[in-house]
């Protein structure tokens, strides 16, 4: 019932022609969301905790070689493969069109992670530590996840909630551009644009109608909320 009433449908557009692959978004995400610091050993096992990663593709061979970058975060699918498999309803769909993950419900079956075609869900295989006084950097706005819990990108829901609280206090809807996840906020090239897809005049909705748009693994029918814009190099014109 609430699905119909929310005036928001959060989404993101990532312009690959702007993206330089610099990695600012990755650190911004880790800083904002209390993402654990992973040792070399942990990453060698494929258990990196980053919620946002930049895929790098080599195309061609020397000297006609090219590189493309693809920032991959939770796509917040509307037909999300992760949601129906959770036995305890820790993974669910939120009225604003977001894929929620409730840490206090999660029992760590990892079904959702196995079912995600984008491999954006990360599992706390190890307890993560912030040796004192490094723990001072932990944000009080969100939970510090313990071992045995699945976690993933939330589109910085704590920021969305803060913006909604502000807006509610002033009795108005959230303005376009008022709320930005940490990654979009810091992106030097302004490659990431976040906003309300339900508002056809918002910047993100306008960009999502670009002829360069595509969705990741579109043929799987997951209907992601993240649109990508193709790089405009000569092979794409």
């Amino acid at each position: 019932m609430e699905k119909l009433t929310s005036p928001y449908k959060w989404g993101m557009v990532i312009d690959l022609d702007r993206c330089t692959g610099c990695g600012a978004c990755v650190v911004a995400c880790q800083a904002e969301n209390n993402v654990g610091i992973c040792e070399k050993q942990e990453i060698s096992e494929g258990r990196n905790m980053h919620w946002l990663r930049i895929e790098r593709f080599w195309v061609g061979e020397y000297p006609d070689v090219r590189v493309r970058f693809l920032p991959v975060l939770c796509q917040h699918c509307h037909d999300a493969p992760c949601e129906p498999v959770c036995p305890v309803y820790a993974s669910y769909h939120n009225p604003d069109g977001l894929n929620g993950q409730i840490y206090s419900r999660c029992v760590g079956t990892r079904y959702c992670g196995n079912n995600c075609p984008y491999a954006v869900r990360v599992f706390n295989f190890y307890p993560h530590e912030w040796p004192k006084p490094l723990d001072n950097q932990l944000s009080p706005d969100i939970t510090v996840r313990s071992r045995g819990v699945m976690e993933k990108c939330t589109f910085c829901v704590q920021r969305i909630r803060r913006a909604k609280e502000e807006a509610k206090g002033e009795d108005r809807p959230v303005r376009d551009g008022e709320v930005q996840p940490a990654c979009a906020q810091t992106c030097p090239a302004e490659a990431m644009v976040f906003g309300n897809l339900a508002d056809p005049r918002s910047r993100v909705a306008r960009l999502s109608r670009s002829p360069r748009r595509f969705k990741l693994l579109e043929h799987l029918g997951t209907h992601p909320s993240v649109y990508y814009l193709k790089g405009g190099g000569r092979e794409h014109v």
């Binding site: 990755v26 650190v27 800083a31 001072n136 944000s139 906020q185 810091t186 992106c187 030097p188």
Partner: peptide, 24 residues
């Protein structure tokens, strides 16, 4: 306690943006 570093939107050099090293 300092929690997060962001770019200053009024600053003419970085216009509210920041690199990975600056945030760290």
């Amino acid at each position: 306690r300092a929690k997060k570093i962001e770019g200053n939107p009024d600053h003419p050099v970085n216009r509210g943006r920041l690199c990975a090293r600056g945030q760290a």
